[in-house]
């Protein structure tokens, strides 16, 4: 038996086609399944022996880009719970670390490049809200 072209369409394709067709009537210019949340940019600096921001508050599911510069020696920036890490944060260069928090809670970020006597104190708290 010959199968019609319409019959071979999957349910997903039907729904997508229907959404596109209905878009003008709903006042939508284009069809999107869901708009991606905009990236949140957080700028900060690090020096011996502190980050300029001790606490960073972000939202779960919203992409984050940390733009960080060292004011003195090479440092690190790492958020181990989100596997987000800079190779190195060099003086005078903006290093970008991107990640999307996928769980809520309080997490530690730290310098993971040994920078001197009080290296252990170069850390901060990342708070991820719902």
């Amino acid at each position: 038996m010959k199968t019609s072209a319409i019959a071979t369409w999957t349910r997903r394709r039907w729904l997508k086609a229907a959404a596109v067709a209905a878009a003008p009537a709903l006042g939508l210019g284009v069809y999107h399944a869901a708009a991606a949340p905009r990236e949140v940019v957080i700028s900060m600096t690090v020096k011996r022996f502190e980050f300029s921001k001790k606490v960073i508050v972000v939202k779960k599911g919203v992409p984050v880009v940390i733009e960080i510069t060292s004011l003195d020696v090479p440092h690190g920036f790492s958020v181990p719970d989100f596997h987000a890490r800079a190779e190195v944060v060099m003086p005078g260069i903006v290093t970008k670390v991107r990640f999307t928090p996928d769980k809520t809670g309080e997490f530690q970020f730290l310098c993971d490049i040994f920078c001197g006597d009080k290296h252990d104190e170069v850390e901060g708290k990342l708070i991820v809200t719902a």
């Binding site: 790492s78 181990p80 719970d81 730290l110 993971d112 252990d120």
Partner: peptide, 12 residues
């Protein structure tokens, strides 16, 4: 091994 990377207790 990653004993506690949040405390820098690890090797990259």
């Amino acid at each position: 091994f990653d004993l506690m990377p949040q405390w820098d207790w690890a090797t990259r």
